[in-house]
């Protein structure tokens, strides 16, 4: 089964990490990407328009019930949780999770529910632990899990916490994550055998 959705979570240092990661993906990239970057609740669409300069893929701030289309990058809007349903996104203004709204856990857990083994979860640089629990649930549901090598992270707290708590599939330096995603999402028939750390 092919990977259809890549959920990405990051906080401190995320902007430049996302620049690198998204900038590397080709125009015909066959999966959709959903991103939670912790941000101030009054920040506007500057984040997505900034990142649009560095990627060939169209970048959106999600509007409620927006369809999930391959080759698009979807950002959680400020002050809303981003939730994945089957084929589309929902938003919520439920209370913050781990002090965060949007919360990475909320994105990852709903991704695990709706896409399970068709999803990849990626945790990048970050200064807290939001996302660790979600990654562990995604892993349990058969999704692929990738964590940025803490040595290459501007803030290693989040990657370290993920590695300590989840048997993640891959730990990769930032520069290797996008090439790996391309390989995972485009190599025909290679999805059944997951690469592992062993």
């Amino acid at each position: 089964m092919a990977y259809e959705l890549i959920a990405i979570g990051t906080s401190l240092g995320g902007l430049s990490a996302l620049k690198t990661l998204l900038g590397y993906l080709p125009k015909e990239f066959p999966a959709a990407l959903a991103v939670v970057q912790h941000r101030h609740r009054e920040s506007d669409e500057v984040l997505s328009s900034f990142l649009q300069q560095f990627t060939l893929l169209p970048v959106h701030e999600v509007e409620d019930k927006e369809q999930i289309q391959p080759g698009n990058v979807y950002f959680a809007p400020a002050d809303y949780h981003l939730l994945v349903e089957s084929g589309y996104f929902s938003l919520s203004i439920d209370e913050p999770v781990s002090y965060a709204r949007p919360s990475i856990d909320v994105l990852f857990e709903s991704t695990a529910d709706a896409y399970a083994e068709r999803a990849i979860g990626v945790l990048l640089t970050g200064a807290n632990q939001d996302g660790v629990q979600g990654l562990s649930i995604l892993k349990a549901r058969g999704g692929m899990t990738i964590v940025q090598d803490p040595d290459t992270a501007e803030s290693p707290t989040l990657p370290n916490a993920a590695i300590a708590n989840v048997a993640v599939d891959l730990i990769l330096p930032l520069s290797q994550i996008a090439p790996q995603l391309i390989q995972l999402c485009t190599s025909a028939g290679g999805y059944s055998c997951k690469p592992s750390l062993q």
């Binding site: 949780h81 939730l83 994945v84 349903e85 929902s90 919520s92 439920d94 909320v106 857990e109 709903s110 529910d113 709706a114």
Partner: peptide, 9 residues
Amino acid sequence: YAQASLKRR
């Protein structure tokens, strides 16, 4: 209701 948030609640 939207499933994902309902389930969370």
